[in-house]
Design a protein around this nucleic acid. Structure first.
Length: 412
RNA sequence: GGACAGGUGGCGGAGUGGUUAAACGCACCAGACUGUAAAUCUGGCGCUCCUUGCGGGCUACGGAGGUUCGAACCCUCCCCUGUCAACCA
């Protein structure tokens, strides 16, 4: 899809880059820089920062990464910045306490994980990966103090989060105030032309502008992207809320998770997590509203598109087949995990067995699931938690817990 | 260092000596209804053991001790958070 995009006019490039963005500060500046870039051949330096502690990328992150890709498509330099120094602070949220310091090895390992994932979207040949400890450590304590002198407490406290916590009498650790400064200085060190971030990053991105100005550099253009809601459809997608779709989720999982989102949020996923043009999405939406298209079909299409993006078209097609088999026709998935167990004379109670097989979090939990009718053994619903399973002779058992947990146990 | 307020389950938030594994709400899980959607309704929501019983054991209300037949609740010390005060005495 990157073919021929570098021959677009500046107007066309602007349209391409605007897609999905919440805010661009300022459009005129971006346009000007694109124009100059076209004239001089100097590529824009586009930066986005990532947390070194959480290298598991989910669909929410891809909204930003896709935007990076758009710049890449236009021939600009994209810098994937791993905030290994910033990671010591942790972006202030009021919830996060000081994070544990990662070792060099852990950071390297996480970086590798990142690479594997982002190269599903970004071009491995041209993407620049950098670490902010590179210049932060070099800065030294004295340099850091000097850096801090360029910003005032009042300016930092403008940040909504700080203001809120202050008024609610909740603590703010001193080092949290430094986070925006460090992130802003990254833009100085990298001489960034553009910084991308989620809407929640706006303050930090703007600090970058101020600091660059203070250092006599042209202030970066700030572009914010929406935060994609998680599978619950309400809160932003995040690992800690367990409402995320990881791009490394296996095809069946990924397909199922997409299918579980609400119809209302489906269009947003289409818009932010796929490359399908907005016009097409709008057409579909109207068709659904007019009753000419079934929302479930549209959602299956979404799930298939997303799975294909991070796996393969074949994997996506078979995930769809499996989904239809299991849920539309009440059948069984093809690839049920099988556990082999040696025969023994011991009769094991079902709750304990389910816990041991990993089908329930604990024995107590398994008992509850059984009582609530969530468990079937070889297709028969079991509601008595005292049922035991015979291990004595070879045989095969098929467990189903809830709608989506299956396991086959073979006794030999 | 001082005065005052506060620290309860994933989160919010009741409870202030005795059926309190801890009200209620959110989140979460399961069931029903469906399109594995949403909404709605129902049940559940620390761990473990067994003879599954309004059963036994263990763990839990910032931490450590103590008082008591019995403590989240009272006392002591400690840790943490916030508010006020702080300098011209």
């Amino acid at each position: 899809m990157s073919d021929g995009l570098d021959s677009l006019t500046v107007e066309e490039q602007m349209t391409y880059l605007r897609k999905g963005a919440v805010e661009i500060i300022h459009e005129a500046e971006l346009e000007e820089r694109l124009r100059r870039s076209a004239a001089t051949g100097r590529k824009l330096r586009v930066k986005a920062g990532f947390d070194p502690t959480a290298p598991d990328i989910h669909l929410g992150h891809t909204v930003l990464i896709r935007k990076m890709k758009h710049f890449q498509d236009l021939g600009h330099t994209v810098i994937f910045l791993i905030g290994d120094f910033t990671g010591l602070i942790g972006d202030p949220s009021g919830r996060t306490l000081t994070r544990k310091q990662l070792t060099r090895e852990e950071i390297e390992a996480n970086a590798e994980t990142y690479k594997k994932q982002i190269y599903k979207i970004l071009d491995p040949e041209t993407t620049v990966i950098d670490f902010n400890s590179r210049w932060m450590l070099e800065l030294g304590t004295d340099g850091f103090v000097t850096l801090c002198s360029r910003y005032t407490v009042r300016q930092i406290l403008e940040r909504d989060d700080f203001e809120k916590r202050l008024s609610e009498n909740r603590p703010i650790a001193l080092h949290e105030l430094l986070y925006p400064i460090v992130q802003g200085y990254d833009s100085v060190a990298l001489e960034a032309d553009v910084e991308l971030g989620g809407t929640d990053q706006k303050f930090n991105l703007l600090v970058g502008r101020e600091l660059q100005r203070s250092y006599g550099l042209p202030p970066q253009i700030v572009m914010t992207m929406p935060l994609l809601e998680g599978t619950d459809g309400v809160q932003k997608m995040s690992k800690s809320l367990d409402n995320y779709i990881g791009i490394y989720d296996d095809p069946a999982d990924m397909f199922g998770k997409v299918m579980s989102i609400s119809d209302a949020i489906m269009y947003r996923y289409y818009e932010l997590a796929t490359d399908i043009p907005v016009r097409t999405i709008e057409t579909w939406r109207r068709e659904v509203e007019a009753g000419r298209r079934h929302p479930m079909e549209l959602k299956k299409g979404l799930a298939e598109t997303i799975v294909a993006d991070y796996h393969t078209a074949e994997a996506a097609a078979s995930a769809r087949d499996a989904f239809e088999t299991v849920f539309a026709r009440g059948g069984l998935p093809e690839d049920i995990e099988t556990r082999e167990v040696a025969a023994s004379a011991v009769r094991v109670r079902l709750p304990k067995l389910l816990a041991e097989l990993g089908l329930a979090a604990s024995v107590a939990e398994a008992g509850r699931l059984i009582k609530s009718g969530a468990v079937t053994l070889n297709g028969d619903r079991v509601t008595d938690p005292t049922v035991t399973v015979d291990h004595a002779s070879p045989g095969e058992y098929l467990f189903r817990v809830g709608k989506r947990r299956f396991m086959r146990m073979v006794v030999r």
